Amino acid sequence: MAALGLAIIPAPATATPSYCGLVWGSLDKANSNPSTAPLTDVRSGRNRCFDRLVLDFAGAVTGYHVGYVDSVSMDGSGAAVPLRGGAYLSVVALAPAYDDAGSGTYRPADRRELVDVTGYGTFRQVAWAGSFEGRTTVGLGVRARLPFRVFGLEGPGSGSRIVLDVAHYW
């Protein structure tokens, strides 16, 4: 073909490469299995490609609903939870933050700053939104509406974790 004066144009790529090989999306993610195992801790971590939020439970927990919202609402009252960031994730565990006697099993020192996310690539703020009628909500302020994934893990011991990873970029 080049002899006829036609340029050879390579075919377009069939897929755009993803950031760090991540193929997550930004739509809501859910697992509808409720539990009575209470929340015991909220913690976070950083990775080269994403920031991670972990909810720890004193038993098996797999139920959650995580999605982008215009405003995270306080459990029970519905009041808006102030968050820093360009986008907000409502992180709902289908499990309480109190025991069978109604005593709190997770008592944050500062409801506005559950964990220190200073210097994180994506996270801007993690705030308490409450626990009511077997559901516990955490508000997560992030830099922008970015891809995320959610999954459950067993352990340590008889406990479990709900893990939320939010990518640094698309």
Rank of each mutant, 00 (worst) to 15 (best):
G76E: 12
A7P: 07
G5P: 03
L94G: 00
D51K: 13
A87T: 01
R111M: 05
D56G: 02
V66P: 00
T40L: 09
Y106V: 05
A87P: 00
V66Q: 01
A7T: 14
A79P: 02
L53E: 00
P82S: 08
D100C: 02
S44C: 09
R112Y: 10
R112N: 13
V54Y: 09
Y68F: 15
P10W: 05
F50G: 00
D28N: 10
G25V: 05
P10F: 08
G21F: 08
D110A: 07
A7W: 09
G5M: 10
A30I: 14
A58C: 06
R84S: 09
R43C: 03
D99T: 04
D70C: 08
G59C: 04
L22R: 12
G45T: 07
P38H: 06
A15P: 00
H65F: 12
T105V: 07
L94E: 02
D100E: 13
G67P: 01
S26R: 14
G25W: 10
R46Y: 14
R43H: 08
L27D: 13
S18I: 03
V61A: 04
T62C: 04
R43L: 04
C49K: 06
A58R: 02
D56W: 00
A60H: 12
T14R: 06
V23K: 13
R46Q: 15
A7Y: 13
H65W: 12
P82L: 09
A13R: 15
W24I: 01
L53Y: 03
K29W: 01
F50R: 11
L27Y: 12
L94D: 00
P10H: 08
I9D: 07
T14S: 06
S90M: 08
A3Y: 11
P38L: 05
S18G: 11
Y68I: 06
G21I: 09
D99P: 00
D70W: 08
L39C: 05
R111K: 13
V23I: 06
N31I: 02
T16P: 00
A93Q: 03
D75C: 09
G85Q: 03
V69N: 03
S32R: 14
G85V: 00
S26E: 14
D100T: 12
A97C: 07
D100F: 09
R112E: 07
D51S: 12
L22I: 15
A30G: 11
P82E: 04
R52P: 02
A3I: 13
C20E: 14
A30C: 11
N33R: 10
D51F: 14
L53A: 04
P96L: 12
G102V: 14
G78N: 06
S73Y: 07
L6D: 09
L39A: 03
L83S: 11
A93P: 01
A79E: 11
T16G: 05
V54L: 10
N31C: 05
L6T: 06
P10I: 08
P38S: 07
D99W: 06
N33S: 14
V81W: 01
D28E: 12
D28M: 10
R48Q: 06
S35M: 04
Y106P: 01
G5K: 11
G76L: 12
A101Q: 15
S71I: 11
P17A: 09
P82C: 08
A97K: 08
C49R: 05
L94F: 11
D70V: 11
L83R: 09
A15D: 03
G63L: 04
S32D: 14
G5W: 13
N33I: 13
S73P: 02
